[in-house]
Structure formats: C-alpha cells, structure tokens
C-alpha cells in the first residue's frame, strides 16, 4: 500500500512539473516538422513573450476529440487544423471568432486565407497543392482520369475518403469524368474499379513506403509529402494534370473561453508575420499564406507558392465536405470497400 501511495505521489509530481512556468501558451499542432517549428517559431516566441509554449501534437482527429472533451475547461489555447475540421469545431461551438484587428499581419494574407470558413472563425496560415505522384520511368500521368485507367490497374493507391485528401481526389476525378458537382456517381465509378486499387491509404508516410517498394506506382498526395518522395533514389515525378491541381489550406483557431486569448493572438500574429512565414517556407515546412514572403526559385519549386499557383488551386469549400462527409463515407463503405 505504501508503495502505491508513493507511486501516486510520483505520478502526480510528474503531472504538475509541466505546469511550472508563470505564463503558458498551450498549442495543438500537426506532429510534423517539430524540430523546425521549434527553431523558427516556438523558441523565438518564448523569448519575445517570456512565456512557455507547450506543444501538443497528434493527428487532427485525436486533437479535435480532446478539444471537445475539454470544452468546459480548455487545455488548448489555439490549434492549427484543416478548414473542414475548423468548421466542425465551429459548428459545435468550441472555437471563438477571431478579431482581425488583433492580428497586425492580417492584411498581408492572401484573400482566401483571411476568412476561409466564414464568421472569422479561422485564419489560414498555409496552402498546399494536391496532385498525383508517379514513377516517371513506368507511367505517364496527365489527367486525374488516368488513376482509374487500364495502365495503372493493380498498381495505384487512392487516399481514403475519411482523410483530408480523399474528397479532393474524388472532386478531381469528378472533373476528369465530367460528373459535375455531385460526387455520388464518382464514388460509384471508383467502386467499379475497387479491385484495381491496391489500397486506400490514410497516411502519406504509408504511401511513401508503398511507392518505394513498388507496391504502388501512382497515387494522389498533398504537396507537403513531396519532400519524402524527392529524397528517394527512385524517379518520382509530380503530375500537372490537365484538370489542374486540387488544393487545401490549414488554419488557426482559438478555443472558446480559454482565458488566454491575448497570448494566443500574439502567437498567431507572430506565426503569420513575414519573418516567421519566410523562415518556415525556407525550411520547406509550410507554404506561406503571407503575400509578402519572398523566396528563391529553388525553394518556390518545392512549395505551393505565389498568387498564380494559389489562385489556380481547386479548393473544396469546407462546408461542402462537412455537410456531405457522412453520406460519402456511407456510400464509400457500401460501394467501394465491399
């Protein structure tokens, strides 16, 4: 019994050690590139604000579940997530509208990043294009329709409908098949080809592995994963399909009634500043949403960079995804997975 008590005491001590500093900002971010963010963003910000930045990472679903579970007494002050996840949180009344006046860098943002989901519930901090990665020595890709073609049968992977990339791929396949705005017939068409598709992946790192071991020779993927393909010794290429590239945006949100709004605004504003956005872009971590960022051609080539590129992206409105996702998943489960 004594040992039980001392163990509890130890674990309590471990729990509270992290809460030692006076002012603490707790943020929830994607797990990727944490070393780079630490150098370009967290450490400099800690020096400026004299506070501690506590970082929670994980995939967006877990992070959202935690924000929801802790709604009464928010642990997280600000989070970065996808537009559709932000909209889901907004509809559940878990996040607060942002006041652009408190963000000095707001006017420097591309217009689509200023109020991506309406009511100023979120602000975009990075864009990404989405296209098809393929083995240039084995196939030639110039349309999204090629994904369901003869040539790739048995060697193609698609993103799962449940992830961020899935709806984008279905949308672009719809364009290739001239299906209009209703995606149901497109999902039916994917279902008809289900046997030709190796898997419906949910993590881009998984796809990188599959493509490196030649299980898959073409698949749609977000530009943020391109770096992993480029490092490979195999000849991978980034397609420029005739229907164009799909695209998405990640946004910042403020949890409701977190009591730490001032610090959170200060942090958001710092992240959107030309200085930080440039640093993060040069590390090839995030493509900038700040128009004033200037990078070399060499860097730009690896990012989703510049007004021309960003304005040409086919971005799916968050509301469309949130409103239809349940129906898509249902149809996908019956027609594609079975």
């Amino acid at each position: 019994m004594k040992s039980t008590l001392s163990i509890l005491a130890v674990s309590c001590a471990m729990g509270s050690a992290a809460m030692a500093a006076d002012r603490t900002l707790t943020i929830s971010v994607y797990s990727f590139a944490q070393d780079e963010y630490k150098e370009a963003l967290y450490d400099p910000f800690e020096a400026i604000c004299g506070c501690d930045v506590v970082v929670e990472t994980g995939n967006s679903v877990e992070r959202m579940a935690k924000i929801e579970a802790n709604a009464a007494d928010p642990v997280i002050d600000m989070a970065v997530i996808s537009t559709q996840d932000a909209l889901t949180l907004a509809r559940k009344d878990l996040i607060a509208p942002l006041d652009p006046a408190k963000l000095t860098n707001f006017d420097k943002l591309y217009d689509t990043a200023k109020d991506p989901i309406g009511d100023h519930m979120a602000v975009g901090y990075t864009y990404y294009a989405s296209s098809i990665v393929y083995r240039s020595d084995l196939v030639e890709i110039d349309s999204w329709g090629d994904l369901l073609g003869e040539e790739l049968a048995g060697q193609v992977a698609l993103p799962n409908i449940t992830g961020t990339q899935g709806p984008l791929t279905v949308m672009m396949l719809g364009k290739a098949l001239d299906a209009g705005t209703d995606l149901a017939p497109v999902i039916t068409e994917i279902g008809a080809h289900a046997d030709d598709i190796v898997t419906f992946y949910s993590r881009s790192s998984e796809l990188v592995q599959l493509m490196n071991q030649e299980e898959v020779i073409a698949a749609p993927v977000g530009r943020f994963a391109w770096g992993s393909f480029e490092k490979s010794s195999l000849p991978f290429a980034w397609a420029t399909p005739k229907e164009g590239q799909a695209g998405g945006m990640n946004v910042m949100v403020m949890t409701k009634n977190n009591g730490n709004e001032d610090l959170a605004y200060q942090f958001m504003d710092y992240w959107l500043s030309t200085e930080v956005q440039t640093k993060v872009a040069q590390m090839l971590v995030d493509s900038p949403a700040n128009k004033d960022v200037v990078v070399s051609d060499e860097i730009a080539k690896n990012l989703t960079y510049g007004a021309d590129v960003i304005n040409a992206l086919n971005i799916m409105p968050a509301a469309e995804i949130v409103d239809n996702r349940a129906a898509w998943v249902e149809q996908w489960n019956t027609e594609v997975i079975q």
């Binding site: 679903v61 877990e62 579940a65 799962n160 449940t162 289900a194 898997t199 419906f200 992946y201 949910s202 998984e206 996702r325 349940a326 998943v329 997975i337």
Partner: peptide
C-alpha cells in the same frame, strides 16, 4: 488490421476507430 489490411480489409476494431474518429 489498419496497416496490413488497410481500408479494404476492415475489421470491427478498425471500423470502430473510423466511427469515433471520422464520423
């Protein structure tokens, strides 16, 4: 099942995960 079966070989646990996480 999530990694070796993927979404094409769903099992109850992966389906459960999908229900919590996605919908």
């Amino acid at each position: 099942p999530a990694i070796l079966g993927g979404s094409k070989v769903l099992m109850l646990e992966t389906l459960l995960y999908q229900k919590v996480n996605v919908s």
